[in-house]
Write a protein that binds this DNA or RNA. Structure first.
Lengths: 126, 126
DNA sequence: ATACTGATTAGAGTAAACTCTAAGTCAAGG
DNA sequence: CCTTGACTTAGAGTTTACTCTAATCAGTAT
């Protein structure tokens, strides 16, 4: 069981963000006898999943949708599957785009290096 | 030579955005005798490059920096090279992350499908 | 006792990147 | 003549995702 500060540290996010996610109903931790938030291992795993989705540009609104389907229960598995499949398609498209741009940058970088080395060769006495 | 409306259509962005990019000094088109913006092929190519950078999450502030180095002239090639190399490193890291999450989603999706098909098998008379 | 640490809340503020509105002017085409 | 589409400046509004503030309280350290 972790406090909000411990979770923040562990996952490299701020306590502000954790409270924001709770306000948005993305994660609802338990509370201890003082009313302080308590996160267990399954909360942590869910947060790690959320962070992965975020790193791949899934908007908070979609993550919220997915989280609320979870709360609704087992009859939403098909809808959840749909969301994941949709995001997977986005990711695969994004990978293609990134590879394209990576190639484009590689060519530009080579051209710049070439230009710089030629310029250097032209002014040997500088 | 293209008008702002033609460029917007061609590149799938709005005229507002093109004016905004001009305000931010990312692209400075020519003007015709009426003072209307005129974009030539090299403007178009530069805009296509900007859009590619944006698709790969380069912030407008960085694109601005790169554009202003261009305007400053040839002595900024090293700085430009640096910016491109930095963004290339970001992209390559991002590709790794996307591949990881793609795998993770694949596993989740398989698990969901498995669950759904097992549930269907349990209730053959539904 | 009191200062420090870390927790709580509601709600305000911020940054990025547009996106649009107002309130006009101007020129060409049908 | 009227519509369309361009132009201007200045500024307001929107969305996303935080990020921070203020005021308060509970437990521990000196």
């Amino acid at each position: 069981m972790y406090t909000i500060g411990e979770v923040a540290q562990l996952l490299g996010i701020s306590t502000h963000t954790l409270r924001y996610y709770e306000k948005e109903k993305i994660i609802i931790p338990d509370r201890d006898e003082n009313g302080d938030r308590r996160y267990n291992d399954s909360h942590i795993r869910w947060l790690q999943f959320v962070i992965k989705l975020k790193e791949t540009q899934m908007p908070i609104s979609k993550i919220k949708q997915y989280a609320s389907l979870f709360v609704e229960g087992e009859h939403t598995t098909l809808a959840r599957l749909g969301l994941l499949e949709e995001h997977k398609r986005y990711i695969e498209q994004q990978i293609k785009t990134l590879i394209d741009v990576d190639d484009m940058l590689e060519r530009k970088i080579v051209a710049y290096k070439d230009f710089i080395s030629k310029r250097a060769a032209k002014t040997p006495a500088d």
